[in-house]
Nucleic acid binder design. Structure first.
Lengths: 352, 352
DNA sequence: ATGAAAGCGCTAACAT
DNA sequence: ATGTTAGCGCTTTCAT
């Protein structure tokens, strides 16, 4: 069923039918109702391509997900972010187009997307410190919003980020309040902007208390359980081992926990863990925190919703000045928090 | 840069330029080269929508990902599957359109997708035992491939699945070979076809050895760490507790492990775990198995690649008879396999 | 081997 | 309040 057929059935012109369906005011109320009913009855839906061609708008947003051929893993937080963004798009009648791309050839992909004109805007994932995509997309004139930020880029652009610096500063403070002084950081890859920010928050908290950051207690790699396990195991073998671990994800935290257990230590008595939970609900305990962890938590799904909404506004008015939004993570205190749990709770309620 | 502009620059008609670029034989070799060079120089890419409108093909495949508003979680295996499918699409010049949809309103979504005509085919995720989508899509005449199967559906359709029955039968056999008789099954939601198959494999193995499946040792729920923990904890409190656990995912396996440790038992000495790893590489130990687990493993990314390829063939020839493909999972033996590891290794090498 | 023209399904000026 | 007409950027007959 297309517009032509529908208008013939109704004995109206395509124009009138189109106007009735798109809410133009000059159409009579009776006519509009009649048209709407017929459209519903015949399951009429306008062809996206034809509409796009006529309006010049694609009614679609592109997400480029970088994938490396080396490890067959896709960052699982993408899934939640995309689910959130998808909700927004669905509500506004937009499609979401995913391009899976080898992380090396990304530039070409963005050029192609711009030239093919099948999206009205792009959501940029996983920015690095000096991410070249921001300059590229600016040059191409394609509206975009970055999930995260690129600290090294001077251009103005729109972004939405979690306040990673603050989250990790707060988590470190929490451990310091408990009396910990040897706090290890099991961080993500530091080419990633978010990881660099996390480290800055961690270091700032230490320095503010006069504790010198110890390179032997800082690791950076891709977040796997195994990485968490190895990193923690090695650090626990140091002459002056850490009494607490700050990890950048629940997954690595699980590895850290395993290392602690392997070493014959007791979680929460001998050693503490604070982790950052990017909404990996599978690892959460219902609505509360996992009882064995204390975690800073941000809602990736909500971030997806909001970032998509920002992008749609930008698409509607491409000349608007770039906007940004910083989401705060919450600190959720679990059961076994280390030397002095009571003290921890007090410190926490203060900080809220 | 569009076709009109490009053809004016070249002093040729749009027709000739189009033919040159699309490999039609009647174009002179010299002309073709000249056109191709100009196209490359000006970064010309045909507009997807215009091309689609003219050819009647969308050059896009739809994936509908069901999301519940209750739990803010997206099944993480989707990400890997989609990454695999995306590779295939990119290689063949197809776009991938993702629709995120509340799991209740799915039928309407498929109707809309068909009516909007912006995809040439659909990949169906997470089939239930009697999945209504198969009949719906057949009726709509939209080519589709199912990732998984719907055992209750009689219609012929194309699918790609992992041999879950065999994987779980083999895993159960493995535990039986080790001497276990009280084997618990911590399964996924049994409305899901794959979970039902897994249970069948488990039961078949038990029955073949004359061990009666005990309902007290069988659980079914959504795969979270917490679920694994609770299920295992309760079972371990039984008067006749299990000596081995068979779990349907690495995530729930982590919960099971925690319950085992909570109970003061030693993994691999007192109790064993065999899990099914759907490629959640974050939880894997490099290329080998996690040393504490024994797992059946399937490559979700590869499944995505293959399913997408099957769908593209179907799109090219919608009248071809449905085809199916069954992927085998491998059994990977970890370190601590229970009462008699040596025996396990022997049993395994036999079974390969 | 190349071009002119029609048409894919829709929207948006421009009538009336 | 409704209709006529001209595109949007491409492919595809049909001529030449």
């Amino acid at each position: 069923m297309n517009l032509k057929e529908l208008s013939q059935i109704l004995g109206l012109s395509q124009t009138t039918v189109s106007r009735a369906l798109n809410g133009y005011p000059e159409v009579g109320e009776a006519t509009r109702r009649r048209v709407q009913e017929a459209a519903a009855a015949h399951h009429y839906r306008p062809s996206t391509r034809a509409k796009g061609l006529a309006t010049g708008r694609a009614m679609a947003i592109g997400h480029v997900i970088p994938v490396s051929t080396r490890h067959e893993i896709v960052n699982p937080v993408f899934a939640d972010f995309i689910a959130g963004a998808g909700e927004t798009y669905a509500a506004k009648g937009y499609d979401m187009i995913l391009s899976v791309v080898d992380d090396d050839r990304e530039a070409r992909t963005y050029r192609d997307i711009a030239a093919k004109r099948n999206v009205d805007g792009i959501l940029v994932h996983g920015p690095e410190l000096n991410d070249p995509r921001i300059a590229l997309l600016t040059e191409l004139g394609l509206p975009f919003v970055v999930h995260g930020r690129a600290s090294g880029v001077a251009l103005p652009y729109s972004w939405l980020d979690v306040n990673n610096t603050r989250a990790f500063r707060r988590a470190t403070d929490f451990l310091l309040d408990l009396g910990h002084r040897r706090i290890a950081l099991v961080n993500g890859l530091e080419e990633m902007d978010f990881a660099a920010r996390r480290r800055r928050g961690y270091e700032a908290a230490l320095l503010a208390r006069g504790v010198a950051p110890d390179p032997a207690l800082m690791r950076s790699s891709e977040m796997t359980e195994n990485y968490g396990h190895e990193a923690a195991a090695e650090m626990l073998r140091l002459p002056d081992p850490p009494t607490a671990f700050l990890t950048a994800s629940m997954i690595s935290a699980l590895g850290v926990r395993r290392a602690i257990e392997d070493a014959g230590l007791k979680m929460g008595r001998d050693v503490s863990i604070v982790t950052h939970d990017d909404d990996l609900g599978y690892l959460r305990n219902g609505d509360g925190a996992d009882p064995i962890f204390t975690a800073t938590r941000s809602s990736v799904r909500e971030a997806g919703r909001l970032a998509a909404a920002m992008l749609l506004e930008l698409v509607a008015d491409p000349d608007r000045t770039p906007r940004s939004r910083l989401m705060e993570a919450t600190l959720v205190v679990g059961q076994s928090t280390g030397p002095a749990p009571q003290q921890a709770q007090a410190a926490l309620s203060q900080r809220r």
